[in-house]
């Protein structure tokens, strides 16, 4: 590696460090937002940014079916990656990704409210995560690839090395949601006596923060704190390391 190449990496390190710092501060702000807003009871939910906690009662119309595990769900996202080789290394390329969501009702001990998960950051664990030869995957995965015209066969019909990931939100799953409470477009104004019937939780037009997680608030805050410190410390180290080399290169030091 020559000196100019190292200089280029150093510039990338400084820029990357600044980006990490910015994301660190965004994470800090989001953590504060979660801390600042108390959890609302569903029956007395007010309009605006709200935090609720409960379990999925039912879908508004019908459930979706997850692509790889064939389960009933209200949200799924997936990715299919393929391993490729260059002269120097092997790397993964995403060849297909997608997500879909259905409106659902979240229930706590006081009532139910309609949630539209479209546009939310959904933080749930994998429901399916497997790496291996494509033709040896479960039949649901093969069916999905065939119906979506994903080329999973390699040279003379042999399988390719592929990676599959799926995340789903299932019925009865407990969820933490922070989103915007707005007028429910599916209920005519004044026709329902219950306050929560007139409300839908969705991504706000002004406040874009919309977060859905299976973790309770305390655990979620710990995750945010860890992410924030990693981003801030990582960003600072990258800037210091990168800037030091740039200064050395330019003979400033």
């Amino acid at each position: 590696m020559d000196l100019t190449e190292i200089l280029l990496y150093s510039i990338f390190a400084v820029v990357g460090g600044i980006v990490l710092l910015i994301f660190g501060f965004i994470t800090f702000n989001n953590k504060r937002l979660i801390e600042n807003i108390p959890t609302s009871k569903i029956r007395s939910i007010a309009m605006g940014l709200v935090e609720i906690f409960g379990s999925i009662a039912k879908a508004h119309e019908k459930y979706l079916t997850s692509p790889f595990t064939d389960k009933k769900c209200v949200y799924y996202s997936y990715s299919i990656e393929e391993e490729r080789k260059s002269e120097k290394s092997t790397y993964w390329v995403t060849i297909k990704r997608g997500k879909d969501s259905a409106l659902f009702y979240l229930r706590d001990d006081t009532g139910e409210v309609l949630v539209n998960p479209e546009g939310a950051v959904v933080d749930v664990p994998y429901s399916f995560n497997r790496t291996g030869t494509s033709i040896r995957m479960p039949k649901e995965v093969i069916n999905f690839m065939e119906s979506n015209r994903v080329n999973y066969r390699g040279f003379i019909g042999l399988g390719k090395r592929m990676r599959f990931k799926e995340y789903i939100v299932e019925p009865n799953q407990k969820l933490y949601i922070m989103g915007t409470a707005d007028d429910n477009p599916y209920v005519e104004t004044g026709t329902s006596e219950k306050n929560s019937d007139n409300v839908i939780i969705k991504k706000g037009a002004h406040n874009k923060f919309f977060y859905i997680s299976n973790k309770p608030e305390k655990e979620l805050l710990k995750t945010f704190a860890l992410k924030m410190w990693l981003l801030l410390i990582g960003g600072s180290l990258l800037i210091i390391g990168g800037a030091t080399y740039i200064f050395i290169y330019l003979n400033i030091i």
């Binding site: 108390p38 009871k41 029956r43 007395s44 007010a46 006081t110 306050n195």
Partner: peptide, 9 residues
């Protein structure tokens, strides 16, 4: 009930 919840909130 709603008043009680909102007082708590």
């Amino acid at each position: 009930n709603e008043i009680a919840d909102r007082r708590e909130f």
